[in-house]
Amino acid sequence: MSLTIKNLSFSYPDKAVLKNISLSNLPKGKLTVLLGPNAAGKSTFFRSLAGLVDADYEQILINDESLSELTAAERTQRVCYMPQIFSTQAMLTVFEVVLLAQKQLNSWSVTEEDVQSVDALLKQFEIEHLAQRYISELSGGQQQLVSICQAMARSAELFLLDEPTSALDLRHQLQVMQRLKDETQQRDVITIIALHDLSLAARFADNILLMKDGKLQGHGETEFMFSSPLIEDIYGIEIELFRNSKGSLVVTSELK
């Protein structure tokens, strides 16, 4: 039970963005972090898995189900994609938008159960005090927490989160990553998180995927990947890896 991709490619008319990405048996229950410099194709990779762009592929298997045999609705049920940018203008309350994600447009009516589970989610992420505020009034970090809540409200099998911590303060970054790791284990789902922060990646990831120029440059377990020279090559930096007194992996980086 895992994610397998064979030859996933996507091109704009004048530019190839994803070039023959293949990946076998990315395990579920484990947190995978997708690393890569700007314009590596990380977002496009997510969008093509979520079906937001029409990519070519030989085969994509999510828990032994072939993506090409799923209807659009079935695909949406299995794949949850959280985009990096969140529209901030809507006069919708936090409660409403999380409810919306949870309902997934399945029916018009709102049941007591729906309301209760949204309530529980907001508590988990400690934003229940924002429930009746309009999302347009929130700070960037608060909006991002709402967005993560929306993703967690879904009962998908593959979660693709594009930079979920980019606007969060340090405490919330750690909290959210831990939460996502726990949820991945508990729900036994496949989670891929695109990150720019190598320290967060080293600390929380079980597996690392490395992308550059639309190609998957390598993947493997976190400690192995950070020990190989690949990350240094791809980013053009020097990194140092050690364990702090609490036993967590720590990465520091320097310009070459």
Partner: peptide, 23 residues
């Protein structure tokens, strides 16, 4: 009225709406 959920979701941006399964 039938499309009201989808229209509400559209206010969160095209990508978000699409990722909720809206065409």
């Amino acid at each position: 009225f039938y499309r009201s959920w989808a229209l509400t979701a559209l206010r969160m941006g095209d990508d978000k709406a699409a990722s909720l399964g809206i065409n």
